[in-house]
């Protein structure tokens, strides 16, 4: 069964309703490892060797973060800069991540319609995420569609709990094989998915 490594990065989790809710719903499971990067490395001094060992021991990498400036918070960028190293993750001999899968779990303040050609941002999320996609494929990882929670500034508490519960179910379904990776690659988003019961 595939093992999941969640790399969570939020510099001010105390103030994030949606992410607090989602993290509470991350299942305690022997095949799911949760890393709270801002808690582990407040001084940004990422332990490269330890993180590489963890990555090597998992099959699916989940980068869970708010979508800041069409990208990720600085510590997660630092993490990728240091840990996805030349000669380890890419370049000559860099095959450690090859064959794994990676996807992002993203919360955005703006509503879904803002991420359309006619919307506030003028582009789709898929377009904005192109550099992130290339990061994964450069390392030989298959790119899965993102799990997106839009409009976090406006969702109600009930909607919040529902979204968090769905996140929990997706993670479990990925580990026990109910959601096969091949069936996911064609999708646009993971948050819309209906989870098979068996």
């Amino acid at each position: 069964m595939p093992r999941i490594l969640i790399l969570f990065a939020h510099p001010r989790l105390e103030k994030s309703r949606i992410n607090k809710a989602m993290i509470r719903q991350v299942p305690t499971h022997r095949d799911i490892t949760f890393r709270d990067l801002y808690e582990l490395y407040p001084d940004f001094n990422v332990d490269i060797a330890a993180e590489q060992a963890l990555l090597a021991a998992h099959d699916i990498v989940v980068l869970h973060h708010p979508f800041y400036w069409y990208s990720m918070p600085p510590l997660l960028k630092q993490y990728i800069d240091l840990v996805y190293a030349f000669g380890w993750a890419y370049g000559p001999g860099g095959t450690a991540l090859k064959g794994k899968a990676q996807f992002h779990v993203i919360s955005t303040g703006g509503a879904e319609v803002a991420y359309t050609p006619d919307g506030f941002h003028g582009h789709t999320l898929k377009e904005f995420m192109l550099p992130l996609k290339r990061t994964a494929t450069l390392c030989g990882m298959s790119w899965l569609p993102p799990y997106v929670v839009h409009g976090t500034n406006r969702v109600s508490d009930a909607e919040l709990e529902q979204a968090a519960r769905h996140y929990h179910d997706v993670l479990l379904a990925l580990t026990d094989g109910r959601l096969g990776l091949q069936t996911l690659t064609g999708l646009d988003r993971l948050d819309m998915i209906t989870i098979p019961t068996t």
């Binding site: 510099p11 989790l13 105390e14 801002y38 808690e39 407040p42 001084d43 510590l75």
Partner: peptide, 8 residues
């Protein structure tokens, strides 16, 4: 306190 918050 969150570690990073304390650090900041």
């Amino acid at each position: 306190m969150r570690h990073y918050t304390a650090h900041r």
